[in-house]
């Protein structure tokens, strides 16, 4: 661990500078306290996945991919499809991440994204049944962090939404119901049945200051973290508080008000890109352009 701590100890001078700027309402990257960094959504770059998205949130980058397979339903929900969310935070994305089994943090992010999708009932699970009680579609959603420059939670959720949005289920024909014999016709696709698009907002608290979408350095000095998600109808559909510090009641009210005020705008930013941007092979032109740093504004 020491080698990692070495990279991450911020000098007291820098810390004080960031905090003194924050008390004046200014952030080191010039954003307002409650602004998101630029969100780039590149739909469906991975052709072998049944759904995928490359997302950048400022300089944070994630790649999300979906694979779908027929599977046995859970005994308590025999007539519902299954989805599983998994995060892979490998050292590609950060010197703080390690190879091997997922860290507590990676699991927390996966579970938060899972709860947001589940609470908002985004995926119509009842439409994912192949043979009732016997066979359903299982949607595996794998979130790969590529570059961690802060707020992997919101980036991961956006990536998941986008991959689901462009994702599909192949047509399936039941040949023998009793023997569970089916034929999958890969070429014939229907979109994954969806009914909502929840949006999450992650805040950091540094001293007495609340701010949205923390960068890595802000995460480094934050005392506490709060994620609030909201669905299409404007209902709050998941909350997660993280890190060792605490929030006052008024912080929570303020955060909630911002989420309610801003969620439609963020949803539109994501939606517009999903609708307009080229998919498949052409998506890579955009990934290349982004990677090449031609999109410096963040």
């Amino acid at each position: 661990m020491i080698s990692e701590i070495r990279k991450e100890i911020l000098s007291n001078i820098e810390k004080e500078m960031i905090i003194s700027q924050l008390t004046k309402g200014k952030r080191i990257d010039g954003r307002g306290l409650f602004d998101f960094r630029k969100i780039n959504v590149i739909p469906a770059p991975v052709e072998k996945a049944e759904g995928s998205a490359f997302v950048s949130l400022g300089k944070t980058k994630v790649l999300v991919g979906i694979k779908v397979n027929p599977a046995m339903p859970f005994p308590d929900t025999p007539n519902e499809g299954i989805f599983v969310i998994n995060t892979e935070f490998s050292p590609v994305a950060s010197p703080l991440f390690e190879l091997g089994p997922p860290s507590e943090y990676a699991i927390e992010v996966a579970r938060v994204v899972d709860r947001i999708i589940r609470s908002s009932e985004m995926i119509k699970l009842d439409e994912l049944v192949i043979i009732p009680g016997e066979l359903v579609w299982m949607i595996n959603i794998d979130i790969y962090a590529l570059d961690d420059n802060g707020n992997l939670i919101d980036a991961s959720l956006i990536g998941t939404l986008a991959a689901l949005y462009v994702g599909y289920i192949p047509r399936v024909e039941v040949i023998d119901k009793d023997r569970k014999k089916i034929e999958i016709i890969k070429e014939e696709r229907t979109p994954i049945p969806l009914k909502d698009m929840p949006i999450s907002f992650t805040f950091a608290k540094i001293k007495d200051i609340l701010l949205l979408d923390p960068t890595r350095i802000e995460e480094n000095i934050m005392d506490a973290r709060l994620t609030i998600a909201v669905n299409n109808k404007g209902e709050i559909c998941s909350v997660q508080k993280g890190e060792g510090g605490g929030f006052k009641l008024e912080d929570i009210h303020l955060a909630k008000d911002i989420v309610i005020k801003k969620s439609n705008g963020i949803r539109k930013i994501i939606n517009d890109q999903l609708v307009k941007k080229p998919r498949g092979k052409e998506a890579w032109n955009e990934i290349r352009r982004l990677s090449y740093g031609e999109d410096e504004e963040s």
Partner: peptide
């Protein structure tokens, strides 16, 4: 050196 494939880089999902 660590070489890894994403789970969705191949036809059948690769376990992590």
């Amino acid at each position: 050196v660590a070489y890894r494939m994403t789970s969705f880089s191949v036809e059948e999902r690769k376990k992590p």
